[in-house]
Amino acid sequence: MEWTGARYADTPTVAVRRGIGASPERVWELVTDIALMPRLSDELQSVQWLGGTTAPAVGARFVGRSRHDAFGEWETTSYVVECTAPRVFAWAVSDPERPSAVWRFTLEARDDGTTDLTQWMRLGPGRSGLSFAIDRMPEKEQKIVFVRMREFERNIGATLDALKAIAEGAGER
């Protein structure tokens, strides 16, 4: 696990990696199943493809609905910005040119047929719900960013653990 950036303008990032005892194709099937993700997350409540799309492709859009005790409920539209099976699936939140966040799954095949899976995310450079908290308490920006990035780190770890369990046959799909 690693994360960088102390201020929102730094576009802080976090990345978490797991080794998964399944092929990249199997892991790809799971990470690109956006309907699965709300079952693996406390924050993400629902996800739905838009515009008749049923599978990931660059330019495809989906709407996500989320809930957080401190931030309330919100809805965002995300745009698939990278989709190379079975290696990279990434999306930009709200505006592909100036996203409030970018999320990415990277899959690396191991020689033994298993997969290293990394989930990475970057805040900004566009404004997000966190921006409003910082606007209200600018003197606490570093603490606000730190707390949220640690939250992302924990949540990503939990998502990857759940994906690992499913891919390895120990969890529900």
Rank of each mutant, 00 (worst) to 15 (best):
L30V: 03
V31S: 11
R39L: 05
S41T: 06
S41Q: 10
D42R: 11
V47H: 11
V47W: 10
L50V: 07
L50M: 14
T54L: 07
A55Q: 12
A55M: 00
R61K: 10
R65L: 04
H68C: 02
A70P: 10
A70L: 13
A70E: 13
G72C: 04
G72Q: 03
E73A: 12
Y79D: 07
Y79C: 05
V81S: 06
V81I: 14
T84N: 06
A85S: 04
A85M: 01
R87T: 11
A90K: 02
W91K: 01
W91F: 02
D95K: 01
D95W: 00
D95N: 05
E97M: 10
R98Y: 07
P99S: 08
P99M: 10
S100I: 00
V102D: 04
W103F: 08
W103H: 02
R104Y: 00
T106G: 07
L107E: 02
E108I: 00
A109P: 13
D112R: 09
G113N: 06
D116R: 10
W120C: 05
L123F: 01
L123V: 04
G124V: 05
P125I: 00
F132I: 01
F132V: 12
F132Y: 12
M137F: 14
M137C: 13
K140L: 15
K140R: 15
E141T: 11
E141D: 01
Q142P: 05
K143F: 15
K143S: 15
V147F: 12
M149K: 10
R150I: 13
E153Y: 06
E153K: 15
